[in-house]
Design a protein around this nucleic acid. Structure first.
Lengths: 228, 228
DNA sequence: CGATTGACGACTGTCGACAGCTTGAAACCT
DNA sequence: AGGTTTCAAGCTGTCGACAGTCGTCAATCG
């Protein structure tokens, strides 16, 4: 975790002086959703700081950040622990996601236009292409990107922030079951159905579509957890 | 900012060794929603640390906490600034609140029973009593308590956390207009209507009631901001 | 032999310090 | 005067250090 500026002379490189906190946060995030820490495992600030070659201050700040994102939990005087999700909490996360996306679609359907439709269709195309061959994490990211676009187009930035908050937990949920969705094709189809519902302009149809879409995802994840 | 244990001998007091971070966070929260900092004002870590007689570490952590709660925003290498809300952001907050409470009521109406109804009616009684004479902040807290109970009874802890997150922003919104609701009686009446809708068991009626209730609050706050 | 106590090690909470960046203003040039 | 450069002050990001607390394990007592 050494700071490597690594900027060649000629190029007007966008110097991203990423502070240590962000780098540590990224490292921890990847380690957690990559299952390199066991759920419930205690993380020692000292050890992490030693391993990463930084002091404890940025480690603490990064850990607090991940705590606010729901990836870690802290106990006073005892430190940080990797979030362990039981079936109930997992179901709650998907229920909240349903809440947010229902609302976003109800708003979006009133301002839906060709430009938004095109952008969303492009994203689904990307997902279909990624369905075969790409890594699971890539598929997950493209899927989340689609839903993030959906909410962003609804026009409520605070709603988008709420989604970003739970998206980290969603990644954790998905990572916990070790695999993405059952059938890459069916999930792609489901996204087309969402777009068709939006294009129809019928709020009830949108709601049906998103209920089905998220219901399938939730059932799959909850079932996966039950097995694991 | 001294730690005052203050436990008498007899009582088996639960000793809460509040750490400095929490105390600083409380101080900053009160100062912000109490309008003792101007919106957009820059807060210096050093100065705060000096004023409060602590080092910069707990101040930083508290500031990061308030940032995650939407009361502060940070810029790299520049520090923390008091969140300034424009009309659009303010409307977004209330729209998200509507989203969460709609969902909570839809869930709650399916598990509503006499015990929950009694507890909620008691809370409305408290609010009615507080309507005359008590301080504005007290009224706000009792009002928020009612809505928090509503969501807690819905049974989704993640939903409750989302509400707690925006509740801090709600306090900021309300503080920004400098006064609570127009008519203490009308707001109390509106809460009774919510309870009646829940008791009726009719989801559509619940949705109407919460839409009206939050719509009134939002219109009032948005109008208040426009004047200020 | 089981329960309690005490000491030890490890870790968190907090602190003060230093380097580098940001900012505002003085000094300078045109 | 208007704009630019230089400079100093203040601040943030990061670090290492210390004190108090928590968990563990062995020694002690019933």
């Amino acid at each position: 975790m050494s700071t490597t500026p690594s900027n060649a002379l000629g190029g007007a490189v966008i110097i991203q002086q990423r502070n240590l906190v962000e780098q540590v946060a990224d490292y921890l995030t990847q380690a957690i959703i990559g299952q390199r820490f066991a759920p419930g495992e205690r993380l020692s600030e000292m050890q992490l700081a030693r391993d990463l070659g930084v002091s404890r201050a940025p480690v603490r700040e990064a850990a607090r950040l991940l705590e606010s994102r729901g990836l870690l939990v802290s106990q006073p005087r005892r430190g940080f622990f990797v979030r362990a999700l039981d079936t109930g909490e997992l179901s709650d996360v998907f229920d909240l996601r349903l809440c947010l996306e229902r609302h976003a679609l109800a708003r979006l359907v009133t301002v839906f236009d060709a430009e938004k439709e095109l952008a969303l269709r492009r994203q689904v195309d990307i997902m279909c292409n990624a369905a075969t061959g790409d890594s699971d994490s890539r598929k997950i990211e493209e899927d989340l990107s689609f839903h993030r676009m959906l909410i962003a187009y609804a026009g409520n930035r605070r709603l988008l922030k709420a989604f970003d908050d739970i998206s980290h937990e969603l990644r954790l949920c998905i990572a916990l079951i070790g695999k993405t969705h059952a059938d890459p094709d069916s999930i792609a189809t489901s996204h087309w159905a969402l777009l068709d519902a939006l294009a129809s302009g019928d709020p009830a149809r949108c709601r049906e579509a998103i209920d089905y879409h998220i219901g399938v995802a939730r059932d799959y994840v909850v079932k996966g957890i039950g097995e694991a």
